[in-house]
Design a protein around this nucleic acid. Structure first.
Lengths: 208, 208
DNA sequence: ATTTAGTTATACATAATGTCAAGTGAAACT
DNA sequence: AGTTTCACTTGACATTATGTATAACTAAAT
């Protein structure tokens, strides 16, 4: 016997409150990962900075790993990367498309440089987190394929995709910029490298 | 009063025993960091695999960080990188020097790919460890400077050193090779990138 | 008025780093 | 020979972080 048959219940207004707490927690996590406040970034610190309890974090994100994945996701969704990629691909000149795409990823990475570096490091140490992060990079691989398609059939090689994919990775920008320069400043070098490499490919594939 | 004035004591034969335990521990640490045995790499695991107590590890390396620094050091010393760099610089053709240097670092990184990746990740999360690791990379920076000197005065620019330094970093090889290929296979791409970039620099700096 | 579900407050289990102190044993000294 | 030195061991303990379990609380939905 069931004295209280389940009653239908939609969250309605409560959804926005939930979304707000999630946003607060994610924001706190990003800030702490970026080094604000302290070097520390324990779940306790995140919760305290977000003004919630540690249990709320577990409630919303299941685990530390879940929180970090969500941090990555929210960043990818919130940014203006899609618009910038769209703008890049609307250019006619393939070389300008390449430049636009590289610039787009440069500012994307630059916006979260500090915490992206740390979350990626955590992804190296925690394979499951690493896979989750890597899965989010498919978009970039597709973008590079599309760029090469624009440049003509000669460029549609798997190896070239791999090279452009690697050249536009966070690691490449981060290492090229080094500890002193802003990450965006690496964009011009990445572009030069990509251009020079592609030109060389063109030269060697064209019979003379 | 001091009934037992300090007596002179040289370690003598005991040194070799100490060196052996250090080597055992470092070996165990490298193997576990490379993923052998398990994903785990706690001090307990390292000690167990080395056949010593956790306290011995603290005795020899002060802390986890000290152990990791020592792992990096022992690797840098033990490898054949110096010989290969020497051989590279003994070539006459600057382009062959460049190729030799890139190959040398490729096999250097490849020999410890898995654990280097993890230790570098730990260095990102622990700034002190990160500095210690980064300090060990000065040799590479000097090597790149020397390569550019061989190519003529036109190439002796700080920015070019930075680019070659970044191109020969572990991260570059690791991302270029991707998860499937061997790290050494990235060497040819790195070389192509460096060559193409330098050729472009030469072209744009030469007035036409 | 009652149910629902996110949030809180607490207590607890587990695991890892790091410290402390007493004891062991073999090599180094006298 | 007997004694001293020092790395290594043994075991206990403090600290901190992640993660789990449970009951109380609260505001919104019925």
């Amino acid at each position: 016997m069931s004295p209280h048959p389940p009653r239908s219940y939609r969250l309605g207004r409560r959804q926005t409150a939930i979304a707000r707490t999630r946003a607060k927690v994610l924001r706190a996590a990003r800030e702490l990962l970026a080094g604000k406040g302290d070097g520390e970034c324990t779940l306790d610190d995140v919760a305290r900075r977000a003004g919630v309890t540690r249990m709320t974090v577990y409630n919303q994100f299941k685990s530390r790993r879940g929180l970090l994945e969500a941090v990555f996701d929210s960043f990818a969704q919130g940014g203006e990367l899609p618009q910038r990629l769209g703008a890049a691909f609307s250019r006619g000149n393939p070389d300008e498309v390449l430049a636009g795409v590289i610039d787009a990823f440069a500012s994307f990475w630059a916006a979260g440089r500090k915490w992206i570096r740390r979350v990626r490091a955590l992804g190296v140490l925690d394979p499951e987190l690493g896979e989750a992060i890597e899965a989010r990079n498919d978009r970039r691989r597709r973008a590079m394929r599309a760029v090469l398609e624009r440049m003509g059939p000669r460029y549609e090689q798997a190896e070239l995709v791999g090279v452009l994919y690697a050249l536009t990775s966070f690691e490449t920008f981060d290492t090229l910029a080094g500890p002193r320069a802003r990450l965006e400043d690496a964009a011009s070098v990445v572009l030069q490298l990509a251009r020079a490499y592609l030109k060389e490919v063109q030269r060697s594939s064209r019979p003379r």
